[in-house]
C-alpha cells in the first residue's frame, strides 16, 4: 500500500528559496513573533483553552491562505476537518469571510468566492482521520488547489480512546503525523491542528508542559509527550488573566457567545479582551509571546490604547 518515494538529496541552499514562504496570520504582531507567519508545510498545532480563539484563528487562516503570495497567502483553498461536537462552524466561517471580503474588496474578493474555496468534512475518530488522510484527502488535493488543512481538534478524535492503552495511542498519533508529513511534502499543503489543553498542578517542568504566566498551575496541550514530538510548531493561546474587558451590561451576552465576538461591532467605550499567543515549540523562532484581540474583523493586533488600559 505504501510505496517508498524516490529519495532526493537537495542542498540546503536550494531548499532556502523553496521553503522561505510563510503563511501570514493576518495579525502583524503574531507574524513578527512567528518570524513572518506559519510554515507553509508540516504540522502547526494551535493549543488553547476553550474560547481562547483557536477556531477563530483557524477560520481566519482559511481565508488568509487564499490571498496571493505577495500578500502573505499561499494562493489556494482550504479543507476544514471538523471533529468537535456540534455543527461545523459554518455560520462563523461566513461571518469572518464577510469581514475578510470587505477588507480585500479592492482585490475583487467576495464572500461567496472565498467560501467556495473552503471544503468542510466531518471526522469522528482517529481511525477515520487516518483513513481520510490516506484516501479521501489526497483525492481532493489532487483535483483542487488546497494549500491548508485544518483539523479541529485532534484531542476530540481521541475522546473515545481508552486511557489505559497509551502505547497504541502513541503509535496511532505517530502514524497520523507521518501521513500528514508525507501529504504535506507531496501535495504542498500545510496542516494546522487544533488541540485542547489540560490543567496540570504537578511539577510544571515536565517536557510537554506549556507553562503560562500563572505559577503552580501549568497548562499543557492534550495527548501527552508522544504527540508533542509529532508537531513541528506549537502555539499556545490563552485569555489573559484579570484583564478588564467589556462593561458589565455586555457580560451576559458575552457569556452566551463564548469567544465568538465576530458579529459584535465593538460598541463605543467597550473594550475587548486581551489575549496572548505564545510560541511553545518551534524549529525556527524563539519562545516569545504577543498579545492580540478578537473583534468583528477577526484576530488582530491589540492597539496601543488597549494594551495600555489592559
Amino acid at each position: 500500500m505504501e510505496q517508498p518515494g524516490e529519495l532526493r538529496f537537495d542542498r540546503a541552499s536550494d531548499l532556502l528559496e523553496r521553503h522561505r514562504t510563510r503563511l501570514r496570520t493576518g495579525c502583524a504582531r503574531m507574524d513578527e513573533v512567528l518570524g513572518g507567519g506559519l510554515l507553509d508545510r508540516g504540522i502547526t498545532e494551535i493549543a488553547g483553552e476553550a474560547s481562547a480563539g483557536k477556531t477563530q484563528l483557524a477560520l481566519q487562516l482559511i481565508f488568509q491562505v487564499q490571498l496571493p503570495r505577495s500578500e502573505g497567502g499561499l494562493q489556494g483553498g482550504a479543507l476544514f476537518l471538523h471533529a468537535e461536537g456540534g455543527e461545523a462552524p459554518v455560520k462563523r466561517l461566513r461571518q469572518i469571510g464577510s469581514a475578510f471580503a470587505r477588507r480585500w474588496s479592492s482585490a475583487g474578493a467576495t464572500v461567496d468566492r472565498l467560501c467556495d474555496n473552503v471544503f468542510i468534512d466531518r471526522i469522528e475518530t482517529a481511525d477515520l482521520l487516518m483513513n481520510a488522510l490516506r484516501y479521501r484527502v489526497p483525492t481532493l488535493l489532487a483535483t483542487r488547489a488546497v494549500r491548508l488543512v485544518v483539523i479541529d481538534s485532534i484531542a476530540a478524535l481521541f475522546r473515545t480512546h481508552l486511557d489505559d492503552d497509551l502505547p497504541r495511542r502513541s503509535e496511532l498519533l505517530h502514524a497520523i503525523a507521518a501521513e500528514m508529513q508525507a501529504l504535506s511534502d507531496r501535495m504542498h499543503v500545510a496542516f494546522v491542528v487544533l488541540n485542547q489543553i489540560t490543567d496540570s498542578v504537578d511539577t510544571p517542568d515536565t517536557p510537554d508542559a506549556a507553562c503560562t504566566a500563572v505559577p503552580a498551575v501549568s497548562k499543557r496541550a492534550a495527548l501527552g509527550l508522544a504527540w508533542s514530538h509529532c508537531v513541528n510548531t506549537r502555539l499556545l493561546l490563552s485569555r489573559a488573566q484579570a484583564r478588564p474587558f467589556a462593561p458589565p451590561r455586555l457580560q451576559p451576552q458575552l457569556a452566551q457567545l463564548g469567544g465568538a465576538l465576530a458579529e459584535q461591532q465593538p460598541r463605543p467605550g467597550a473594550r475587548v479582551e486581551l489575549r496572548t499567543m505564545r510560541v511553545v515549540l518551534s524549529p525556527c523562532v524563539e519562545q516569545r509571546s504577543c498579545e492580540y484581540v478578537i473583534d468583528a474583523d477577526g484576530v488582530r493586533d491589540a492597539t496601543d490604547d488597549e494594551t495600555a488600559h489592559g
Binding site: 505504501e2 517508498p4 518515494g5 529519495l7 532526493r8 538529496f9 537537495d10 542542498r11 540546503a12 541552499s13 531548499l15 532556502l16 507521518a178 508529513q181 508525507a182 511534502d185
Partner: peptide, 22 residues
C-alpha cells in the same frame, strides 16, 4: 553563508522503509 548552506545535503524521508533504503 551561502557556501555553508551548499555544504549541507538534505534528504527528507517519509517512512522507515525510506529510512532503511537511504
Amino acid at each position: 553563508a551561502s557556501g555553508l548552506l551548499d555544504g549541507i545535503h538534505v534528504c527528507r524521508v517519509h517512512s522507515h522503509r525510506e529510512q532503511v533504503a537511504l
